[in-house]
Design a binder for these strands. Structure first.
Length: 479
RNA sequence: CGAGGUGUGGCGCAAUGGUAGCGCGCUUGCUUUGGGAGCAAGAUGCUGCAGGUUCAAAUCCUGUCACUUCGACCA
């Protein structure tokens, strides 16, 4: 116990204050730093490396589904932003504007992109003329700016890094299929790469994207039961196409409007990783995106042969893993704690005793279990432990999701569950936005997360108004 | 955007009108090294910023900026 206490002295316990725990972890793991620009953060090397790994994994999945990367300008002329009415109403309140270029006031002010639908549309108008030009499957990696009033590292910042996919299709069916396909790509990525199980489904009209006909979402749950909108995929129909006058000649030689989608995930995912997997000792990174998958800690490194052997191990493992040898003169205990805070999945201890026995010690970040293994079978043992860490993270997250998902059939029950248990609440809904407003009002913040793809019939009537229910909705509080 | 709180070395804090200090961290050296090591010697401050009151301001007053808590807002 005394030992445990020592380990965590720099990180606030998540049970004591989850928000403070989050901030502590983000700082101690050296993911980011604050900058002098309000609401903007600095990605430090370790934090940026996580993003690079996420990018590489996701980008491969986008390419595998036929998408190409492009890059659009970061400025949007005001007149362009205003073409689509719902869209501009949704984003105008949080736009940053450039009004001066060099020494002169601009004749038209430029919005720093909060999202790039309008820019893509302007371009699509120029390049889409025939059904032969479709589909257009584009993606862009960039940063966007939204002037948020309350910011938190990774979860909500004024500028954030993301990818935005923008596609154009001949038919509504094809576009709808694309919308769902990309949500599935996100879902698989969350599960396979981030070890995060999540609920997927459709947003209600109240919560959907400004200008979209339908918005689909992936909603992972954080360790404390709070939801995070983890990614969205939108079906636009031909609304933007009409607003931007994008037409093509179809197979029947008629002028048609193409059907459009967009989809995005952001560096907010890093926040999800932290809050889904972390513990009181700090971060725990899923092996597939961990910048360091295994760290080698030499024991008694001043003794002859230790560092040489450790370097040999590093070179050997580097062929297969992202591996680091810490041969700094920090104490051994300090190193142990340091890499636990940084969430390195596997620690490899190598000391004089091990070298004598042709072995080393593997330690799992999740369980802290120590395992003495022969150097002859090191790769297979590391493989096994990395896989084990991934599986344990998935199992833990699944368990948490199940344990913190509740049902309610009456409003009183709903309020009681929210107040005393928190987490996700499954409840029936009549389809009326008035009930969403009322629930948000009465609970002080609970909103519909989504209408899940996997609906259940909990009762015949809306949990709020008692009128016939149309859907089951997953409700919850969010970051 | 509304109400509260906080700004002092890199970080955490002390100093309630009278010469700015402590812990951690940092630097150097030696001893250590299987769970955040020990000893010794060092370095680091226009007290967030701008005004004002006073013989004298980290301290009191005004403004401003930033951070933070709770609300509102947040595809």
């Amino acid at each position: 116990m005394a030992q445990d206490k020592k380990l965590v002295e720099q990180i606030t316990s998540m049970d004591v204050d989850f928000a403070q725990w989050y901030t502590d972890v983000v700082k101690k793991a050296e993911l980011m730093d604050y900058s002098s620009v309000k609401g903007c953060m600095i990605f430090r090397p370790y934090g940026y490396a996580i993003w690079e790994n996420i990018q590489r994994e996701l980008d491969a999945r986008f390419k595998a589904t036929g998408h190409e990367n492009v890059y659009m300008p970061m400025f949007i002329p005001e007149s362009l932003l205003q073409r689509e009415k719902d869209h501009v109403e949704g984003f105008a309140p949080e736009c940053a504007w450039v009004t001066i270029g060099g020494q002169n006031e601009l004749s038209e002010r430029l919005c720093v992109r909060p999202t790039s639908e309008t820019l893509f549309c302007e371009h699509f108008k120029n390049i889409i003329h025939s059904y032969r030009d479709l589909p257009k499957l584009y993606n862009q990696w960039c940063s966007v700016v939204r002037w948020e009033k309350t910011t938190r590292p990774f979860l909500r910042t004024s500028e954030f890094l993301w990818q935005e996919g923008h596609t154009m299709h001949e038919t509504a069916e094809e576009a709808k299929a694309e919308t769902l396909r990309m949500l599935k790509v996100y879902e698989d990525f969350y599960f396979d790469a981030l070890a995060i199980p999540a609920i997927t489904g459709q947003k209600t009209d109240k919560e959907k994207f400004a200008g979209a006909e339908q918005t689909y979402t992936i909603e992972p749950m954080m360790h404390n039961g709070v939801a995070l909108q983890g990614g969205t995929s939108h079906y636009f129909g031909d609304g933007f196409a009409k607003a931007f006058d994008i037409t093509f000649t179809d197979r029947e030689n008629k002028v048609s409007y193409p059907h459009q989608t967009s989809w995005g995930v952001s560096t907010r995912m890093i926040g999800a990783i932290i809050m889904c997997h972390g513990d009181d000792s700090g971060l725990i990174l899923p092996p597939k995106i961990a910048p360091i998958q295994a760290v080698i800690i030499p024991i008694a490194q001043h003794k002859e042969g230790v560092l040489e052997k450790a370097a040999e191990l590093r070179d050997r493992l580097a062929a297969k893993y992202r591996v680091k040898l810490d041969d700094s003169d920090q104490s051994t205990g300090w190193k142990f704690s340091q890499y636990e805070m940084k969430g390195v999945p596997v620690r490899i201890e190598l000391g004089p005793r091990d070298i004598e026995n042709n072995s080393c010690v593997l330690v799992s970040r999740v369980t802290r279990e120590k395992k003495v293994v022969s150097l002859d079978s090191l790769e297979s043992e590391v493989d096994a432990m990395l896989a084990q860490v991934h599986d344990e993270l998935v199992a833990r997250a699944k368990k948490n999701l199940a344990a913190k998902t509740h049902t309610a059939t009456t409003l009183d029950e709903f309020i009681d569950v929210d107040k005393n248990q928190g987490g996700f609440i499954k409840a029936m809904w009549c389809g009326d936005v008035a009930c969403e407003d009322k629930i948000k009002d009465i609970t002080g913040g609970v909103k519909s997360r989504c209408i899940p793809f996997k609906e259940e019939k909990l009762s015949d009537v809306c949990v709020c108004c008692g009128k016939p229910a149309k859907h089951m909705v997953v409700w919850g509080r969010q970051y």
